[in-house]
Design a binder for these strands. Structure first.
Length: 206
DNA sequence: AGCACGATTAACT
DNA sequence: GTTAATCGTGCTC
C-alpha cells in the first residue's frame, strides 16, 4: 500500500537534526503530469532557529522565511545565486523556524525524464547537489509551501529503506557546505548527513 | 534606491 | 584551483 508508506506530519514535527539524519534513505517523490519521479535521499543538512546564523531565519520573520515558521511537513523552496532552486522540508512545531535542506538524491524512478534534464552527466550523478536535484525533478518556486502530508500532493516522502537497515557506519557526519561568512559555532556545527551507498555505474531496472 | 552577497554549478586554467 | 553566470533578499542610506 503506497499510501501507508508515506511519511506523516509527526515525522517532521521533531528536532531538525534528528529529522535530517532520519531522512537519509527515504524516497523523495515528485508527481509531474501523472508521472512519478523519485530518488533516495542521500545528503541532508539541518537549519535550526533564529540563533543559527547559517539559517535564513537568522533574519527573523520575513516574507521569504515565513514558511519556516509555519507547520512542519511543508516544502520550503527558495531561489539563490540568480539561477538555482533549493528544496527544504519544514520541521519542528509551528512557530519555531527550521528546515532540512535536501542536498542529494539517488534517482530510482522516472529515469528517462531525469536523465534528459541532466544531459551530459552520468548516472549516479544526475542529482548529487541541491540545485541539481531540483532541476532533475523540476522543482521550482511554484512548489514553495507544498504540504508533503496532503493527499494528492505533487511532492511527498515515502519510507524507502527501513531505518534499522541504515547503519551508523554508513552515515557520514560533517559541517554544512557553503557557509563562507557564517561565524562559529554555526559554520562548523556537524549538521550535514551523507548516506554512503554502494552504487553500480548503471541505473537499476533499465 | 542602491548595494553586497548568497544553503551553487559548470566550465575553464 | 578559479571564475562567470544572474537576480531575489535583506540591509543601509
Amino acid at each position: 500500500m503506497a499510501d501507508m508508506d508515506r511519511l506523516s506530519r509527526d515525522f517532521f514535527d521533531r528536532n531538525t537534526v534528528i529529522v535530517a539524519k532520519e531522512l537519509l534513505g527515504k524516497r523523495l517523490v515528485r508527481v509531474e503530469d501523472g508521472n512519478r519521479l523519485a530518488g533516495y535521499i542521500v545528503e541532508t543538512e539541518a537549519y535550526r532557529g533564529e540563533e543559527d546564523l547559517g539559517c535564513h531565519a537568522r533574519a527573523g520573520l520575513t516574507q521569504r522565511t515565513s514558511i519556516m515558521y509555519g507547520s512542519p511537513g511543508h516544502a520550503y523552496v527558495y531561489f539563490t545565486y540568480g539561477m538555482h532552486w533549493m528544496l527544504n522540508f519544514v520541521t519542528e512545531p509551528k512557530g519555531f523556524p527550521a528546515a532540512v535542506l535536501i542536498r542529494g538524491i539517488l534517482p530510482c524512478e522516472g529515469m528517462d525524464i531525469i536523465s534528459n534534464r541532466r544531459k551530459g552527466q552520468p548516472f549516479p550523478r544526475w542529482a548529487d547537489g541541491p540545485a541539481k536535484l531540483c532541476q532533475a525533478l523540476n522543482i521550482t518556486g511554484s512548489l514553495n509551501g507544498t504540504d508533503l502530508c496532503a493527499p494528492n500532493s505533487a511532492l511527498f516522502i515515502e519510507n524507502g529503506l527501513p531505518q534499522d537497515k541504515i547503519s551508523n557506519n554508513h552515515v557520514k557526519v560533517s559541517s554544512r557546505i557553503g557557509l563562507f561568512s557564517v561565524p562559529e559555532p554555526w559554520k562548523s556545527i556537524p549538521w550535514r548527513f551523507v548516506l554512503q551507498m554502494e552504487v553500480n555505474n548503471e541505473p537499476a531496472g533499465r
